[in-house]
């Protein structure tokens, strides 16, 4: 059933991000934060990116909106190559892609009123009259289920969940097509998390948004995403529809990650927990071949030498493994 897909909104091809660490030139080492990631994000879908700390998921997110420079590979947005676009060239594109961060407080100037903070994007990108601006700010606040009078308050007068709503409102100001949300709910309490996830889902339906949703919490990603990419040490090891990846993971890392999630249910316990051996290797000194071979139950000598590439195991379901699990 090959229905013609619309062109992707975002396409990366072998995108890599390396950066140096260490102070003196003698101690300098290169971190391969993102290694040759190729992916396509289609309009209206939500791509979840999961992985543990240090897997490069946040760096990848920042690359996608060009908040950081890209070392190699290409990045296209709406058919346009923006890999090396200058800040000036990026300006019209920036309106189309926004980012929501884990800690909204860090990006909200504590000395300015919320109304002013939300009006900033209009000042930069649009010439609006004072009253038009106030109307737009009011619209935004209502959109994220805050009250118009909240515009007069300062960021510290809000709770964590409300601050995240403000962060979302700011991202929505210029009516972007793409929102990259980097751990938007992980700093929040469980009951507030659910509110924000619901809000993001409502906005997706109302505004036809495309999301990249980066999180370490698998259940949140499962709830919110249509497709998911699992990252390990800078690379995507498995990607596919959420249900397929989570209910029958083909990569051994995905399977371990999946089974490690504690389930708040006493009757449907997972049959067998896969507990990984050892620690995540340092991204400064990644293992040869398949990066996961040091902790993998199915590793063979092939895995030590040859790096597996992402290949199809099912429609839309790709895995980078020499010995994928049975589907």
């Amino acid at each position: 059933m090959s229905e013609t897909k619309p062109p992707p909104l975002v396409r990366t091809s072998e995108l890599s991000k390396h950066y140096p660490v260490g102070r003196s030139p003698l101690q300098r080492r290169i971190v391969h934060a993102v290694e040759q990631v190729s992916l396509e994000i289609f309009p209206g879908e939500t791509l979840g990116i999961v992985g543990e700390s240090g897997c490069g998921k946040s760096t990848l997110g920042r690359c996608l909106v060009r908040l950081t420079d890209i070392t190699s590979g290409t990045l296209e947005f709406a058919g346009r190559d923006i890999t090396r676009a200058s800040q000036r060239q990026l300006r019209p594109v920036r309106r189309q892609m926004q980012m929501v961060f884990q800690d909204p407080s860090a990006s909200l100037n504590p000395r300015r009123r919320v109304g002013d903070l939300l009006a900033d994007p209009f000042r930069v990108h649009e010439k609006l009259s004072r009253s038009e601006m106030a109307d737009r700010v009011e619209d935004l606040l209502v959109r994220v289920e805050l009250l118009p009078e909240h515009a007069q308050r300062f960021p510290h007068e809000f709770s964590g969940g409300q601050r995240q709503r403000i962060g979302i409102a700011r991202a929505l100001a210029l009516r972007p097509q793409l929102i990259v949300a980097d751990e938007p709910v992980s700093a929040l309490d469980v009951s507030i998390q659910a509110q924000i996830i619901n809000l993001l889902a409502d906005l997706r339906d109302a505004l036809k948004l495309t999301y990249v949703f980066i999180a370490h919490d698998l259940s949140v990603v499962r709830q919110f995403s249509s497709r998911v990419a699992v990252m390990y040490l800078g690379s995507i090891v498995e990607t596919g529809p959420v249900d397929a990846v989570f209910s029958s993971p083909r990569h051994h890392y995905t399977a371990a990650l999946r089974s490690a999630v504690p389930v708040p249910d006493v009757d449907n316990r997972p049959a067998q927990r896969i507990v990984l051996k050892g620690d995540l290797p340092s991204p400064l000194d990644p293992p040869s071949g398949c990066r996961f071979h040091t902790r993998c139950v199915a590793a063979t000598s092939l895995c030590r030498y040859e790096r597996p590439v992402l290949s199809f195991v099912d429609t839309n379901h790709l895995v980078a493994c020499h010995h994928p699990r049975a589907g």
């Binding site: 309490d189 009951s191 659910a194 709830q223 708040p264 449907n268």
Partner: peptide
């Protein structure tokens, strides 16, 4: 409030309104 790991995904989570 906790998204399930098994079975069908609810359209919306039953969040608790307001904050503590």
């Amino acid at each position: 409030s906790i998204p399930p790991m098994h079975g069908p995904r609810p359209a919306r989570l039953t969040a608790i309104p307001g904050s503590p």
